[in-house]
Design a protein around this nucleic acid. Sequence first.
DNA 1: ACATATAACTCAATGATTGAGATTCTTAAT
DNA 2: ATTAAGAATCTCAATCATTGAGTTATATGT
Lengths: 156, 156
Amino acid sequence: MDGDSGGDIDLQSFAVRLRRMNAEFNRVAHDFAGAHGLHTTDIQALVKIFDAPSPITPSRLREELNLTSGAVTACLDRLERAGHIRRVRDAHDRRVVHLHYLDAAKDLAAAFFQPLGRGTGNALRRFSPEELRIVAAFLDAMNEELDALRAAPGSP
Amino acid sequence: MDGDSGGDIDLQSFAVRLRRMNAEFNRVAHDFAGAHGLHTTDIQALVKIFDAPSPITPSRLREELNLTSGAVTACLDRLERAGHIRRVRDAHDRRVVHLHYLDAAKDLAAAFFQPLGRGTGNALRRFSPEELRIVAAFLDAMNEELDALRAAPGSP
DNA sequence: ACATATAACTCAATGATTGAGATTCTTAAT
DNA sequence: ATTAAGAATCTCAATCATTGAGTTATATGT
């Protein structure tokens, strides 16, 4: 113990906090899945489709979610059948499919996740802009490290 | 100061960062599962068993993971068969089972997640103790809000 | 044209999750 | 003691997602 009062800044305590938050996010996602006749995988796919800067493809999803192509096809079938997404063939390379998140489904998800958004908003509101910049920097740092891990699982 | 122009402190940008981090954690967990003949659910259970302050029971796990009792039993069968946990009947209430994470399995998990721990450590090392206290406070705030959401999914 | 590579899909086999019900034990009341 | 009600866990058949191998359609290079 070196003068730090709270004992809050060691690796283990952060790991516990992060695992707990991760578990809760997964629980919310699991609830959404259940409420809409979907599965955990489908929600993960929806998040990826939603957050992708430009329309994502099934093979990219396969990489992101670590699934087999068969599983991705089945997942997209479910999402398309339930009216969440649409498959659009690329005009230039007709082998390629682009995945579009339908607006109506976006609204549905927005409505469901509104409590989560409010909760996150409440948490953010407790901090000053400078503090939030630090938090954002931390999340960015974590995401950088996680990307590095994905690239080279053992080395860094 | 100029930071207001960065667009880094609005709800949406935080949501994206958090979703991305969540997805990467899940990917790491999925890898661990695959490497040990387990499934995503089993890892979620292991995390809960590991992080519980005192030995957890199957019914508590059922609540935490939102599974049916049948699924929990099957999950624990797999974990016990694979040598990760042990079921211990409570002496006073013999209906109750307590779940113990075996030390050998802890070592196994520690070894596997060492890269993740190093990555997290790298991220933490970029920040001063005061900054880390802010980040820890933010994670605590998020976890509080998430707990509130779990208790009353619609109200706050 | 031909061969090779890539994107997405199909399908049988495997196996996790569900949902209902059975089993074992506890607690409170008669 | 005995009974009834309640709780914690487990069993099992049915359902359905995932896998892994193989197929189709399109693209690229020689």
